[in-house]
Simulated scan of single mutants.
Amino acid sequence: MPRGRPPARTRTDVVAAAVAVADTEGLDALTMRRLATELGAGVMSLYTYVRDKDELVDHMIEHVSGYDGPPAPTLLHLAGWQRDLMLRHPWLPAALPGRGLSGPNAIGYLERGLAALAGTRLSGPAKLEVLALLTGFVAGYVNHELAQARAGRTAGEHVAAQVDRLQEAVASGAYPRLAEVLAEGGSGPPPAFPVIAERMIASLTG
């Protein structure tokens, strides 16, 4: 019996091409038609590799999430690793919310995070919640960084602009606590990511 023609590409090829499109053009630009054009393939042929775009994104997340940090990371290490990963793949923060973790790379992150939390008194569900909140914090931080980069301004310039606007608001006298905080200063650049992340982690695990 004829064995048929072997597939022209693998699922890994398709997923890697999708990652390349999303990295350069954004997740919204990634459609099955756009991916087919990138691969020089028919649109319908892509559905032999993935069911739909949603499944494709699941594979993309798994594809880029191979861990390359220290073997026994702390939560701070994991937060820094996630930040670096999201900066390399700016579509990740938008892709992650609401997705289940099923591949070995994604589940490996949970395993490392739970190991880092082993010395705490948190319950199992609370540990998982801490890891979810930490990922959400990092995603929000990276989104902010990317927005400032697109606007062509530094973090310090953004803070200064925000303080100026708040100073106008507190001049009315309606916000005494905010006025007190602003009087202490704060127009300079914000603390570096490790400092902010460490404070966040302390608040979640303390």
Rank of each mutant, 00 (worst) to 15 (best):
P97C: 10
R88Y: 00
A179C: 09
K53M: 02
R83C: 05
H158F: 12
P90K: 03
S123L: 11
Q148L: 15
S102I: 10
V130D: 02
G69K: 02
A79T: 00
L131V: 12
L182K: 06
V138D: 03
L39G: 06
L96H: 00
V64Q: 03
T12V: 11
G100P: 12
L56Q: 04
L110Q: 01
P90Q: 11
R99M: 05
G113F: 02
P93C: 10
M86W: 12
L166T: 08
Y141A: 07
V21P: 04
L96A: 02
D164E: 13
V170L: 09
G140A: 08
W81Y: 06
V181N: 04
G186H: 00
A95H: 01
R83D: 06
R5L: 14
E168P: 00
T10D: 02
R33D: 12
L146R: 03
R5Y: 08
G40I: 09
K53F: 11
A106Q: 01
S172V: 13
G156L: 07
A29V: 01
G4V: 08
P190K: 10
P104S: 08
G156C: 10
A202F: 03
A179G: 15
R11D: 08
E180N: 09
W81G: 02
S45E: 12
D58L: 02
H77S: 11
S65R: 01
P6W: 07
L56I: 10
V50P: 00
A183C: 12
T37N: 00
A116V: 12
V130W: 14
R51E: 14
S187V: 11
A18S: 03
P70N: 09
A147R: 15
A115H: 14
A160I: 11
L85A: 05
V43A: 09
A36E: 08
K127S: 07
H59D: 15
L92P: 01
R11W: 07
H158S: 15
L128S: 05
V50W: 10
A79C: 06
S187H: 13
A95M: 05
Y47K: 03
L128W: 04
P70H: 11
S203W: 05
A41R: 10
A79L: 04
A41V: 15
A22F: 10
D23Y: 03
R33N: 08
A8V: 13
T205N: 01
V195F: 05
R112Q: 02
D54H: 15
L114S: 03
A169S: 07
L182S: 09
D68R: 04
